[in-house]
C-alpha cells in the first residue's frame, strides 16, 4: 500500500467524488480527514467506511468559502496531528444560471468556495507539509476549458483553480510539494442531479467515446496516482478524466450528422 502512514485531508469528502477519493486514499493505507459542510450524516458514514478499511478517519465541519472556518479547520488538524501529507481540494458549489441572471452574490459564493479555498487551504496545508513534502490535488471540471449550459460561474471558478494549481506547483516545488489538478467531465453524483436535473446522465453516455459516463472512482484512481511517488515529476498539470469526451467532440459531431 503506497500511502501507508500518510495523513490526507479531503474537502467535501463525505459524498460524491470526494467520498470516492477519500475511500481510494484509505484503501492505499492513508488515514483520512473528511471535511464536510452541509451533510454531517453522510460524512460520518464515509468515515465509517474508511475505518472499515483499517485506517483512521476523522470528520471536520467547515465551510471552505469562509476564511475563518478554513483557519479553524487547520488549527484543529494542526493541534491534533501537527502534520499533513496529502491535501485534496474537492469541495465545490455553484450557481447554475444564465449569464443575465448572475449577480455579485452568486459570483462571490462560487469563487470563494471553488477557487479561493484552494489558495487559503494550500497556504495552511503547506505549513503542515513543511520539511516532509506533500501532495496537493485540486478537482476541476471540463467546464474550465469548454462551455457548458448555465455553467459560467463554475467554469470560470475552475479556470481560476487550474491556473492557481500551476502557480502553487512552481512556488511549492522546492518544498517537495507536488501540486496538480484533475478535471473530470460530468460525473454521476448527487451534485450533477442538483445542477442539471434529469437528462444529463443519458446525454453524458452519448457524448463519451469510452461508452459510459465517468464515475467518481475514475477520478479517485487518478488522484491516488498523483498522490503516489510514481507521479513525482508531474507538476502543475491538469489531468483530464473524461472518457475521451473533450478530444472526441469533432468526431462525435461528425457522427451525429
Amino acid at each position: 500500500m503506497s500511502l501507508e502512514g500518510k495523513l490526507a485531508l479531503v474537502t467535501g469528502g463525505g459524498r460524491g467524488i470526494g467520498k470516492a477519493i477519500a475511500l481510494k486514499l484509505a484503501s492505499q493505507g492513508a488515514d483520512v480527514i473528511v471535511n464536510f459542510f452541509r451533510h454531517r450524516d453522510t460524512a460520518q458514514e464515509t468515515a465509517g467506511e474508511i475505518e472499515a478499511l483499517g485506517v483512521k478517519a476523522e470528520t471536520v465541519r467547515a465551510n471552505v468559502g469562509d476564511p475563518a472556518k478554513i483557519d479553524e479547520m487547520f488549527d484543529t488538524i494542526s493541534t491534533k496531528f501537527g502534520r499533513l501529507d496529502i491535501f485534496i481540494s474537492n469541495a465545490a458549489s455553484g450557481v447554475g444560471r444564465p449569464i443575465t441572471e448572475l449577480d455579485v452574490k452568486a459570483w462571490e459564493w462560487t469563487m470563494d468556495i471553488n477557487a479561493r479555498a484552494l489558495l487559503l487551504c494550500s497556504q495552511r496545508a503547506a505549513k503542515l507539509m513543511s520539511g516532509r513534502g506533500g501532495k496537493i490535488v485540486s478537482i476541476s471540471s471540463l467546464g474550465s476549458s469548454f462551455v457548458l449550459p448555465n455553467y459560467t460561474l463554475v467554469g470560470v471558478s475552475k479556470a481560476a483553480l487550474e491556473a492557481l494549481t500551476r502557480y502553487l506547483a512552481i512556488e511549492f516545488a522546492s518544498q517537495n510539494i507536488c501540486v496538480n489538478a484533475v478535471a473530470a467531465s460530468a460525473v454521476e453524483t448527487e451534485a450533477l442531479k442538483f445542477y442539471f436535473k434529469e437528462g444529463m446522465a443519458q446525454e453524458g453516455h452519448h457524448l463519451t467515446p469510452a461508452g459510459r459516463m465517468v464515475a467518481p472512482e475514475d477520478v479517485a484512481n487518478v488522484v491516488s496516482f498523483l498522490c503516489s511517488e510514481e507521479a513525482l515529476m508531474i507538476r502543475g498539470q491538469t489531468i483530464v478524466v473524461d472518457g475521451g469526451t473533450s478530444v472526441g467532440l469533432l468526431a462525435l459531431a461528425g457522427k451525429g450528422g
Binding site: R38, H39, R40, D41, R61, N63, V95, K105, A106, W109
Partner: peptide, 23 residues
C-alpha cells in the same frame, strides 16, 4: 433562490451556534 436559502441557513447557524443539516 437556493443560494439565498443556503446563506440564510449558514447565517442562522452561526448566530445561534447550532447546525442545520440539509437533510
Amino acid at each position: 433562490d437556493s443560494l439565498d436559502v443556503v446563506q440564510a441557513l449558514v447565517a442562522v447557524e452561526e448566530l445561534f451556534e447550532i447546525e442545520i443539516p440539509d437533510e
